[in-house]
Each structure stands twice: as structure tokens, then as C-alpha cells.
Design a protein around this nucleic acid. Structure first.
Length: 273
DNA sequence: ACTATGCCCTGGGTGC
DNA sequence: TGCACCCAGGGCATAG
């Protein structure tokens, strides 16, 4: 499941390969009908054809391909999507949903087992992500901002961390990891978090995202970088999918519970409510 | 305004 | 071996 570190790794991989290139042909395969949100598949293909890529940005988990007509091609990978740069002759993948041919003879393949990924072609990227707040790595994401969004809420800390209007880019893996680093029980009612723990949580979010980014992301299942390789960070996590194992900080047994509708991993001994 | 739930989708795992 | 079920979860719509 690509979250901020994974999407940023892809952005960095694809930037030198795509910027300055022109799209010569796009094919959304049968079965990929739901991929293009803003237009029917054939219209989407035609509108991208001939467009040059002038830059790639990222906002939260969204990849923003800036086009030479001023529009933006907004890509979201959801859980199982990947976008990989390969030679034209590379075989059709089992879960390939679309193929983009570039003017240097190379191609991009959009793979997505579960077909949750989305493409938008929009004049203003905000149209495609109306609920997105400050990116977790932006200067707008501050301890004060996080505290203001925790205040007065009866929901769990985990639910607030997963809220893309609070810290865009944090998903299930890094919400659990941040809670562990900050020694906060993810089930804690948000309103119980004061300035001290809000500051710790804020620092923990930056720490876990930074560590994963340095390892090119986590590949628990389908995530692949822009060149098709797995990330390296999944073996370095503290709690995510480590239920039943010993907490490396206190020796407690890591539990798994359902919090905010998501599988949630934490150490009940050293993570406090 | 806030909160919880269900939907989309398919492969992999489990239990009988 | 086969089959039915459950689980994974990001973002959105909907209900309460």
C-alpha cells in the first residue's frame, strides 16, 4: 500500500525519466474502465496523447504529472497500484491496466490488482483531491496544527492521523509506526492528547516517514518503485504486522486490534492511553 | 459538525 | 482437492 514514502520514491524515480518526454500513445486496457475518473477511457487516452511532461509533484499520496498545456494528470495508486518505467518490449503484466508510450521509445505500465487506482485529468490539481490538507512533509504540518486537529475530538488518535485533511500522506503503516515511536496508544481519544504528546506525535510522523523514505519505502505486498523494484523498509518497522512478536522497546507482546476500521498494531505495555 | 459504516475489488489464506 | 468464506484498506458516499 503506497503511502507518502512510497509515492515520493516513485516521484523521484520517474522525474528524470519523464520530464521533457512527450506521451505518444495511451492505452487503458479492458478491465481498466474505472481508472479514468474525469473522462471515458477513449477520451482520456486521446486527451493525453501528444502532451509533454514538464514536472512531477506530489501531494500526500497523489502523484501530480504537470503537462505542457498547464493541466495536471493526477494519479492515485490506492492499495495495489504501481507505475513502472520499462522498455517498450516488456511483456504485458498480469495486472496491467494501462500502458503509456513515450517519445523516446520507453513505456510506463500502470498495474493494479484490485482496480482501486484513479486517474484525473484536471486544470487545477485540487479538483482531484478536494479533501487533502497539508502534506506531512510540508512546513504547514506543524505540532500546533496537529494539536488543533486533535482538540475536542472524541475519535481515536489513529483516526486523526489517517485523516488526509490533517496530515496528507500518512496511511495505515505509518500511523501505527508513529504511535509506537511516540509511545501513544492508537486507541487513545484524540482530545486526551495535549501539547506535549502532540509534539511527540508530530516528530514521530516525520521520523517514520523519513526513515522509510531513506529505505525507498515498504513493500508489504504490491508496492514497487518507479523501476519495478521493492522497497527495503518493511523489515525495519517496529509494530506493523508484527502482532505476537516482542516489542523491541519493552519486551511486551505486540497486539493487533481494529481501530478506525483498520488493522492496528501496537504494544499495550509501553504505548499509553 | 462529527462519527461510524459500507462500498469498491481480487488474490491469498483458512476452515470444513 | 474443493469450496465457501474472510481479510487486506484509501477515499468517498451515506446514515445517524
Amino acid at each position: 500500500m503506497p503511502e507518502l514514502p512510497e509515492v515520493e520514491t516513485i516521484r523521484r524515480d520517474l522525474t528524470p525519466l519523464l520530464v521533457g518526454r512527450r506521451v505518444t500513445r495511451v492505452r487503458i486496457h479492458a478491465g481498466g474502465e474505472r481508472l479514468a475518473i474525469t473522462d471515458p477511457p477513449r477520451v482520456f487516452e486521446r486527451r493525453l496523447q501528444g502532451r509533454g511532461v514538464v514536472g512531477i509533484d506530489r501531494q500526500g499520496k497523489y502523484l501530480l504529472l504537470r503537462l505542457d498545456d498547464g493541466w495536471t494528470w493526477v494519479i492515485h495508486l490506492r492499495m495495489t497500484g504501481s507505475i513502472v518505467h520499462v522498455p517498450a518490449e516488456a511483456p504485458l503484466g498480469r495486472f496491467e491496466r494501462a500502458r503509456i508510450d513515450l517519445d523516446d521509445g520507453s513505456t510506463l505500465r500502470f498495474n493494479d490488482l484490485r482496480k482501486f487506482g484513479t486517474w484525473h485529468l484536471v486544470e487545477d490539481a485540487a479538483e482531484a483531491m478536494p479533501h487533502s490538507g497539508p502534506d506531512a512533509l510540508s512546513e504547514a504540518f506543524t505540532p500546533e496544527w496537529l494539536l488543533s486537529r486533535l482538540r475536542g475530538r472524541s475519535t481515536s488518535v489513529k483516526a486523526v492521523l489517517l485523516d488526509q485533511s490533517v496530515c496528507a500522506g500518512v496511511g495505515n503503516i505509518y500511523a501505527d509506526e508513529a504511535c509506537w515511536i511516540a509511545s501513544v496508544d492508537p486507541r487513545t481519544e484524540a482530545s486526551r492528547i495535549g501539547p506535549v504528546r502532540a509534539r511527540r506525535l508530530h516528530a514521530a510522523v516525520l521520523e517514520t516517514l523519513g526513515a522509510s523514505l531513506a529505505n525507498r519505502g515498504s513493500s508489504f505486498s504490491d508496492y514497487r518503485d518507479g523501476l519495478g523494484a521493492a522497497g527495503l523498509h518493511h523489515v525495519r518497522v517496529h509494530v506493523f504486522r508484527r502482532e505476537g512478536q516482542a516489542c523491541e522497546r519493552c519486551g511486551g507482546i505486540i497486539l493487533k486490534a481494529r481501530v478506525a476500521g483498520r488493522g492496528t498494531h501496537f504494544c499495550p505495555r509501553c504505548q499509553r492511553k
